[in-house]
Computed example of a mutant assay.
Amino acid sequence: MAQKYDITMKNIFSDMADDIMSYFLGLQYTKIDELNIEFARVERRDSDMIFKCTIDKGNVAVHIEFQSENDGKMPYRMLRYSLEIMEKHNLIPYQIVVYIGKDNVNMVNSLSYDFGEQNTLDYRYRIINVGEIKFTEVIKTDYYDLYSLLPLMDKNRRKEEGEKYLERCVEAIKGIPLDINKKKDIAFKAEILSGIVYKREVIEKAFMEVVRMFRIEESETYKMIIEKGIEKGAQQEKIAIAKEMLSEGISIEKISKITKLSVEEIKKLIN
């Protein structure tokens, strides 16, 4: 996806991998190992998620990319990724792009040409548009890690209900039958991801009670972000993180607490 969430990408989505493969893809699988590949030939970036899994067709590499914006070059990127996976791990890649953006999906999911049987290409991967997933369908399941994505789901209902929909998502997270620490983590991720489609003041209002109730700053994801260098990182890194959090709708006070930048320093970034 775009670089907006690179800092916390794996922390936000790592716990969702099993639920995504089971619920979104309907895969019956056994996860063997996580494969960390830096796509040096492509963009010198780490993959979002790649897992070596056993499915009914044998061992495969399940490759999941998250995208918050439409990218016309996505098919070329995904094809290059697939070649890297096959070359380095000798595994057939099962590739998925999970689209979490605000706009409608207008990316294609294939590349093809045909110059006769000696020179053809027919390449495809799957795009899952989270905005098309129904709120009511997900909350009927026990795929609780997917509740972090609820604010981005059910686009039509979200548009009709506005901030009421976000409040409904918060209530669903509060009602999850899991221990408080897991709920903290899911709520924190949902709050961050809400920034893709909601304005800051709407997010703060919707999550006000749950932040106070769960003490979100104690969530494991929150702690991991700090451990990754937010607390002791260089000034430029802190500023970059603060800018991203501002765009995600997180309050200035909370950003100050996380990054250790002053409120005045953060206010100067709002332009």
Rank of each mutant, 00 (worst) to 15 (best):
S22G: 11
L261M: 06
K254Y: 04
L111Y: 05
I255P: 04
K267A: 04
G162I: 06
E132Y: 02
S110F: 09
Y123K: 08
M153S: 09
K4G: 14
F135C: 05
I92L: 11
E217C: 11
S256M: 01
E253S: 03
R124T: 14
K134F: 15
K232Y: 08
K232R: 10
K189C: 09
A242T: 10
R80P: 03
A2N: 13
E204K: 05
D46K: 10
K223I: 14
L83K: 02
D19H: 10
C169S: 01
L261C: 00
L111G: 07
R200P: 11
N36L: 12
S68L: 13
K238S: 08
L146H: 05
E65A: 07
C169N: 00
D18T: 12
D145C: 05
T136I: 10
L261E: 02
S148Y: 01
K238G: 06
V202W: 10
E227Q: 10
M107N: 06
D71Q: 03
K73N: 10
G175Q: 13
G116F: 08
L193T: 00
P151F: 00
R168G: 08
R157P: 04
E191S: 13
I20W: 01
I133A: 01
N109E: 11
I239M: 10
K243F: 04
Y76M: 13
E191V: 11
P93G: 07
K260Y: 02
E220K: 14
F51V: 03
V210G: 09
S68W: 07
K10N: 11
I64S: 06
E84D: 01
N109L: 06
K268P: 04
H89C: 14
A190S: 12
Q118N: 14
Y113N: 10
E237H: 08
K268G: 03
D142T: 08
E231G: 15
N119M: 12
S68M: 09
E161V: 04
M208R: 11
K223V: 06
Q235K: 15
T30N: 07
L83R: 00
A61H: 12
V263Q: 07
F13G: 07
A206V: 11
K254W: 02
L149A: 01
I241K: 13
G175K: 15
G116N: 13
Y123E: 10
G175R: 13
E137G: 01
